[in-house]
């Protein structure tokens, strides 16, 4: 049976009463504390009521208020319902547990989020920059990012 987002929230909240999940109606999405994202993700994938087998998208967002967000868009091919999870971490200490053991594609998405926005995914099996060169400084999609004047002797601005 496909479930609506708030039904999934009630269901997950019953399974993880101590995790401190919260439901954001405006989006809608479930806000998960960083420490418990891995357990929640594993449950969401394997639970027979949820079967969220696909990670459609994992996005890093700089919220602009000293916090960074990681957004997980999940989808169930069998039950045909969707779920959005959100993890919000402070920009000063952006550690999020990796979910690359849950959905294999998360590895690349997390690397991209690290590369462009700069959160650190603990436990990612191949954690390094993916798009920008290894010696690049900074994370371009941060709202306070300054474009460097030179890179390896090449002028960057027009």
């Amino acid at each position: 049976m496909p479930k609506a987002m708030n039904e999934i929230f009630d269901y997950l909240n019953g399974l993880f009463p101590e995790a401190g999940l919260a439901f954001d109606e405006s989006v809608p999405c479930i806000i998960v504390p960083a420490a418990s994202i891995k357990e929640v993700a594993l449950q969401a994938r394997d639970d027979q009521e949820l079967l969220l087998d696909t990670l459609m998208c994992l996005s890093g967002v700089d919220n602009g208020d000293e916090t960074l967000g990681v957004v997980y868009h999940l989808d169930s091919m069998t039950l045909r319902h969707k779920l959005t999870l959100k993890v919000i971490v402070p920009a000063s200490d952006p550690h999020v547990p990796s979910v690359d053991r849950v959905w294999r594609i998360a590895e690349w998405h997390e690397r991209e989020a690290f590369d462009l926005v700069g959160m650190i995914f603990d436990g990612n099996s191949d954690f390094r920059r993916i798009l920008l060169p290894e010696d690049w400084e900074g994370h371009p999609l941060r709202k306070d990012y300054q474009v460097p004047e030179f890179y390896n002797g090449m002028k960057v601005p027009y």
Partner: peptide, 11 residues
Amino acid sequence: VLPRDVAVSYG
């Protein structure tokens, strides 16, 4: 050869 479950897990 890309098995079905691998394809789904890799999205």
